[in-house]
Simulated assay, not measured.
Amino acid sequence: MIKEILNNIERPIFRQYQKGQAIYRELEAPQFLYIVEEGIIGLYYNSENGKESFLRVYGPGEIFGHRSYFLEEPYHANSISLTKSKLMLIDRKQCDKICLQSPDLLKNMTKILARELGNAERRLARMADKSAKARIVEALVYLKLKHPEHHWTRKEVADFAVSTFESVTRILKELELAGLITKSGRSIEIIDEQKLLKYSIENY
């Protein structure tokens, strides 16, 4: 589906973002669809008490900002460049033209939205049933496998696992002593994903 979009763009807009630079903010009106060309993008929202909650990540070839764009509603979350990134931006005029030329695009976009909703519901169900250790281990495995080149911070892992910085620090130390991960500065390396997941189940 992404390749189909790219093939129908006459004058694509590309923008470079530095690490830590905001792409859009919560409650802003959507003006573009975004496709990741290079880098990693994070999506997060601020709760009423001011706490940031990390929702998900997008890598090369993935599209984001589409939910609010097609609903014509303000963004429900914030997006930030976790690494130096390059994005393709599609404005509404270009998108309308693509949709007219390729009706299947809308069907595919509906499938993407439905899949993301299902994944979000399953994630919430898993979070409610699992211990903090299991949530942190699963978050660590997911983030490291999805983007192994990125040095995920303890805060990012904690937010994604719906946990705390202190819990992540404590559990990472436990996992290191158990010989399941290695740490060097900010870098965390998983020695064996399957053994790590098994350990979190057996030692909850």
Rank of each mutant, 00 (worst) to 15 (best):
E10G: 07
R11I: 13
Q18D: 10
K19H: 05
A22V: 08
I23A: 02
I23R: 01
I23F: 00
E26D: 01
E26Y: 00
E26K: 03
L27W: 05
P30F: 06
Q31E: 07
F32H: 03
L33T: 00
I35T: 00
V36Y: 01
V36N: 01
V36G: 00
E37S: 05
E37M: 04
E38K: 10
I40D: 00
I41H: 02
I41T: 04
G42S: 07
L43H: 05
Y45Q: 13
Y45G: 06
N46H: 15
N46T: 14
S47N: 13
E48Q: 14
G50C: 08
G50R: 09
G50M: 08
E52D: 10
E52K: 14
R56K: 14
R56N: 12
V57P: 01
G59R: 08
P60F: 05
E62G: 02
F64T: 02
H66Q: 14
R67S: 12
S68A: 15
L71F: 14
E73I: 12
P74T: 05
P74I: 09
A77L: 12
N78W: 13
S79P: 04
I80W: 07
T83S: 11
S85Q: 02
L89W: 00
D91G: 00
D91T: 01
R92T: 00
R92S: 03
Q94N: 02
C95R: 05
D96S: 09
D96G: 06
K97M: 11
I98K: 04
I98M: 07
C99Y: 14
C99G: 10
L100Q: 15
L100A: 11
L100W: 11
S102Y: 15
L106M: 15
L106Y: 09
L106G: 06
K107V: 15
K107E: 12
T110L: 15
T110A: 15
K111D: 12
K111W: 10
I112L: 11
R115N: 14
G118C: 13
A120W: 13
A120F: 13
A120N: 10
A120K: 14
M127W: 13
M127L: 14
S131R: 10
R135K: 11
I136H: 07
E138Y: 13
V141R: 03
Y142V: 08
Y142S: 14
L143R: 03
K144W: 08
P148M: 06
P148L: 07
